[in-house]
Amino acid sequence: MRIEILLGLIAPLLLGAHIGRHAAGERVAVADPMLTCSAGPEYYRIDLVSTRKLPGTYAASGFVDVQYARSPFGVALSPTGQYVYDFDVKLADVKAQPKGHYVVWLATPTLQDVQHVGPLSAQFEVSGQVTFNKFLVVVSLEQDGYDTARWTGPIAFRGLSRSGKMHTSIGHGLFQDEPCVQYGFN
């Protein structure tokens, strides 16, 4: 009986979170009823996951939608060959904090390069452009004077670019028995 009551309380929350995810990730192409294909540009969409460290973020969700920056060539590239993406960060079901601002950062996986995107708007949105090959998305809670080289406050949300999921084959799968040292690995 208690479980049923508990489920009754949780179900609307889960449903709300599900709806919220769709609202946060809406894109023009996906909304097109003629585009009935199984996957599309959202294949490269980045899910933002709450770290559940801050109140008001437990049921929150979000996306980073990436699309090619405007280019006469369709595919936008930097002079060194990185894709140039415009991106939109959107959070849903998140509450503003009484003190501080949510600020969005992009970082390479080693954290060697960090890009300060800026604070989320009152609608919890911000846009920017990125040329990193692989990148992390970090939404931190920053106090005033957050124009720093790297986040200083707690991380509220995090995400990883689709390209970041490309990982090494060394030492596992088909290569688990390979003598990787011979290929330059310790």
Binding site: V28, A29, Y43, Y68, G74, V75
Partner: peptide
Amino acid sequence: IDGVPNENLVWKDTAIVPVGSTM
């Protein structure tokens, strides 16, 4: 491309369709 209108049009006979994209 991916629902984003092209605002500087040019007549083509060959164009790239990237993976995951709709053109």
